[in-house]
């Protein structure tokens, strides 16, 4: 548990030179623009280390037609389609309303072209956000997104171009929908990324039998939640093999819904652990996860929450 009395709790960690309350991150697209969950009694943004804001594009986007979300076994599909008010609105109207004393806010930048990523990142560079996540893995838009993320060459081009316009920490969000995620990570490190987020959602679909149509208005969507946890763990572990020597941290994510899940991701190599879909079931889940991490820390007599990252023995 983060101790509110002292300056810093025992789970505080460093990430790309930024100090975080704890290793928990609320994931992009699950918590709007950062303030929505503070309406839930018992939750405060202080309870997490960082919050990733909704995917943001240069121009406003209305997003995809209905339906956009649908439950599937142990998970859900979403096809929001990056509904957002555009980067200028986010920077001018939304960021000034956020309380940066409580937690760290990471922007989530998206684009349909390399130039659009650069424009979005440039605007966030000139804003109070603490880091910028490059979402090159959104499965729910026709152009850009996963089209970049599934190709190591294109991924590296986006990272390189964005690196040139910002000195803020850059986090590259990797897609699981590709052949060799480790190779992609290697290329992105060379292109200048400071960190990774892994994984974004897996592509999937659901069928409405009566209507003989896909349930989602977009036809297909991204699968998240416990159903993808084993896939996510493996991908984090694979990316960690590349990151370890280079000192590049990973925000592990995909189906985390308990403290035990968070420990697993950290052992597999995640410096921070992201929570998204689990919030929809239990909006207070991060308090329970933080409690568990603190218990685990005491149990293994660790000094801090970075001590067990990547400490996975051979099978």
């Amino acid at each position: 548990m983060v101790d509110q009395q002292t300056e810093e709790g025992s789970l505080a960690v460093d990430f790309c030179g930024i100090r975080l309350n704890n290793p928990l991150v609320l994931l992009s697209g699950c918590v709007g623009f950062g303030e929505e969950y503070t309406r839930v009694e018992g939750f405060s943004n202080r309870d997490v280390g960082a919050i990733c804001l909704k995917g943001t594009t240069l121009e406003p986007r209305l997003g995809n037609p209905l339906h956009r979300v649908y439950e599937t076994p142990a998970g859900m599909l979403n096809a929001i389609g990056l509904q957002n008010p555009g980067v200028d609105h986010v920077v001018r109207k939304i960021l000034p309303t956020l309380d940066f004393s409580e937690t760290r806010f990471f922007a989530n930048a998206c684009g349909a072209t390399v130039d659009e990523y650069v424009d979005v990142v440039r605007r966030f560079d000139d804003s109070p956000v603490d880091a910028i996540e490059l979402n090159i893995s959104c499965p729910n838009v026709k152009a850009g997104g996963a089209a970049f993320g599934n190709d190591p060459e294109m991924s590296a081009r986006v990272v390189e171009a964005c690196r040139a316009v910002t000195s803020k920490p850059l986090i590259t969000k990797l897609s699981p929908n590709q052949t060799d995620i480790a190779e992609n990570a290697r290329r992105c490190i060379d292109a200048g990324t400071d960190a990774f987020a892994a994984i974004n959602t897996l592509m999937g679909m659901a069928v409405d039998v009566a209507a003989r149509k896909p349930v989602l208005g977009n036809g297909q969507g991204g699968l998240s939640g416990p159903a993808i946890k084993p896939v996510a763990l493996l991908k984090v572990h694979q990316v960690y093999q590349v990151c370890q020597q280079r000192g590049i941290p990973i925000i592990g994510q995909g189906g985390v819904s308990s403290g035990a899940d968070a420990v697993e991701f950290m052992l597999a190599g995640a410096a921070l652990v992201g929570v998204g879909t689990a919030l929809f079931y239990d909006p207070l889940v991060c308090l329970a996860i933080a409690d568990h991490l603190e218990q685990y820390r005491l149990q293994i007599s660790a000094e801090g929450a970075a001590d067990w990252v990547g400490k996975l023995g051979a099978a």
Partner: peptide, 16 residues
């Protein structure tokens, strides 16, 4: 009515 995930305003899943 529309299908929902969070009901907190976080996901933009329930829009009309």
């Amino acid at each position: 009515e529309e299908y929902m995930a969070c009901a907190v305003g976080g996901c933009a899943g329930c829009v009309v």
